[in-house]
Write a protein that binds this DNA or RNA. Sequence first.
RNA 1: GCACUCAUAGCUCAGCUGGAUAGAGCAUCGCCCUUCUAAGGCGAGGGUCUUAGGUUCGAAUCCUAAUGGGUGUACCA
Length: 564
Amino acid sequence: MNLKSNISIIIKTALDKCDISADVVINESTKAEFGDYQYNGIMPLAKVFKQNPREIAKRVVSQIEIGTIISKVEVAGPGFINIFLNRDWLSENANIALKDDRLSISKTDNPLKILIDYSGPNMAKEMHVGHLRSTIIGDSLANLSKFLGHNVIRQNHVGDWGTQFGMLIAYLEDISQDSADNLKNLEQFYKDAKKRFDEDEDFADKAREYVVKIQSGDEHCLKLWKQFIDISLHHCEDVYKKLGVSLTRDDVKAESFYNSELDNTIKFLEDKSLIDISDGAKCIFFEDSDTPMIIQKKDGGYLYATTDLAAIRYRVETLKADKILYVVDARQSFHFKQLFEIASKVNFSDNVVLEHIAFGTMMDKSGRPFKTRDGGTVKLVNLLDESISKAKDSINKRENYSDTDIEKIAEVVGIGAVKYADLSINRESNYIFDWDKMLSFDGNTALYLQYGYVRISSILKKYDGDINSCNISISDDLEQKLVLTLLKFEDTLDRVYIQSKPHILTLYLYDLTTLFMRFYEQNPILRDDIVEDIQKSRLAIASLSAKTIKQGLEILGIEVVDRL
RNA sequence: GCACUCAUAGCUCAGCUGGAUAGAGCAUCGCCCUUCUAAGGCGAGGGUCUUAGGUUCGAAUCCUAAUGGGUGUACCA
């Protein structure tokens, strides 16, 4: 149910009848007295028509079809057109949504192959809180695109190549004990290796030698490297599993995957005569900037940019992506600007949309970047475990559930809290990492939504009639507002999709749940004195609320439970 | 130096792309459980939307400048 487009069409028709051509943008009204929606497009026309905007508005209003969808329109203020929706029409559409598995959310007419590049951890280190954003923003965008009917390719561009791996595998070989055991703490392993590298000249030489050896395909070193990557990937997978993120090993296309294509990529660019040599390095220059993108170092080595270019080719030519989203830290904006510019110069990406879904940096409480200072890095696993254990504590204070139930609920609540805290912030802004806030269960948090869902579940469980026979028939203003909000779900998802901003969805779900909570307090359902028709209608409203909350959270990658 | 980005309540953030009296959560202070889960609801206080100009019927939102954070800026990823 796309409310806005339904209304836009009616307004557009009225404008046509008045011989006015204008883009129709419908806004939600800020206050109940201004109706459900408003059209503000008349005022700018006053000058063009040399007429009082109120007069124009009156003319348009007289042409607006009143009936099934719109119950009333009025001109207000300098020329606002306030639109009131028909209560029965809302009820009817809510009923249709209630009976539909997809809640009346249509699948796109134009399915695209959307490739989403996200998470991208470095294999040399354990995932820390800084990896959270890319991972869950990317995952929720992937979930959403899929839900809207697109073909989604998830790509985990893990960092498994580079000079540091020489050091790591040399150290792995050196300690030559049970490697899996020693790699349990990747962070420590890296530190130990680094220490050895800095202190032991022979070891450092060996490390450097091993870098070359992996790159030239030395069997022994490659075996060590593969072993290392495998263990490191397992670490990531543990985190993904805990986080409820759907990335699997099939989604991994690591940097090393593109190694064999790097030469070709350079040749390809040379053929297009884009490459200049500057200070011995192969560069691509841009008209509006002094800073080139370096494609190949003077020593012949390849760079991040080279891999990315090779990756675009692969994604466009082999995977046939229509749209590629890079969910990567905003600090790399310049890199992506250059990358996309090159892509368009060489037509890698004719008709392919390339977008950098940038997100802000995580700051500490004093407003400085949350640096991975030595020994001070917050591991992602630790954050998640902490949250789960905090959830467990508060459950224990309230309820006597079995251990297995507590485990399950604590996980859903704990993980939900962390994900929601991150997803509910506009990704473009920097954000302050605060343990208390991250692990908070008060106010605008995942728990609030989960709790709303639980309240509904509890009612539906207690009701002994047939819920499927219940129909929505709005009986007061609060119910109307709630139902209207429920029907805005599709508009909301569209906005989230267009802007790639999950926080729009969290905001919507929070608003929705707030309305439901009020409804819950004011409009009792199972009480004896409630007449059957109203009871059934309220049950249906509650049921649709639960379904919408659940579906919304599912897109965000957050689970619900039946009780808390 | 240049470029990008941000600045909204004590704190953390929204503000649907220029609309009517700027909204939430936390924190503070009241009220509401013999009534569907109080991890909840209702209410109060709290604002010169960093500053100064400009654009127009109308600006937190757009343009310019200043100030202050953050980031990027040639062989790391």
